[in-house]
């Protein structure tokens, strides 16, 4: 970690934000009926697992949890050399489900566009909602999150990183100022 990095959220802050989002998801969907949580690899899948656990604690029932890899749906295949394909792990039918996509940082919206296409290729969900730990702005597509941990105005030159420990638990959110 460089000296110029700024901590936006610490571990307790992340935990509080996810707890609030879990409650908002339940309030908005009026319970857990047909609800499914799907994290976007990698980062979003770890947060999705945490969110799912929090929802289970509140409601006493496990909601289906999945992870989606969007590499094959990117719009820049053939222009990047590092396109490692991960596994998509959605072991429940998505048709009829209220799918909550989870990602760590929302930036241009291109990842979310790809993730929506990937989910739709697996079936016809009743709806797709979006939960984001940190929204940094600069959208290039008309995409808007339903649940936001923290809004953070950034410049395009800056970077935002979510750090995870060896147990895949989020430890902090950092703003990296370049140049």
């Amino acid at each position: 970690m460089a000296d110029s990095d700024v901590i936006i959220l610490d571990q307790a802050g992340i935990d509080r934000a996810l707890t609030r989002i879990a409650h908002e998801i339940l309030e908005h969907n009026k319970g857990i009926e047909d609800l499914a949580i799907v994290g976007i690899r990698t980062g979003g899948d770890y947060l999705a697992a945490l969110l799912q656990r929090k929802i289970s604690q509140i409601e006493g029932v496990d909601v289906p949890l999945g992870a989606i890899d969007i590499t094959l749906y990117r719009d820049d295949i053939g222009t990047r050399s590092d396109l490692k394909v991960g596994k998509t792990d959605i072991l429940f039918p998505v048709t009829g489900k209220k799918v909550v996509l989870v990602d760590d940082v929302l930036f241009t919206g291109r990842t979310i566009r790809a993730a929506m296409d990937a989910v739709i290729d697996l079936g016809r969900p009743e709806c797709i909602q979006l939960a984001i730990l940190l929204d940094r702005g600069h959208r290039e597509f008309p995409i808007r999150p339903d649940y936001i941990g923290r809004n953070l105005p950034t410049s395009r030159e800056e970077e935002v990183e979510v750090d995870f420990d060896d147990n895949l638990q989020p430890t902090q959110v950092r703003l990296i100022k370049n140049g």
Binding site: L72, Y73, V85, T88, D89, A118, D121, G123
Partner: peptide, 18 residues
């Protein structure tokens, strides 16, 4: 990479736009 691709052939809609 092939391990990841194997799952696509087991889906109902066996197609990705890569």
């Amino acid at each position: 990479t092939a391990d990841s691709f194997k799952e696509i052939s087991q889906r109902e809609i066996k197609k990705v736009p890569a």
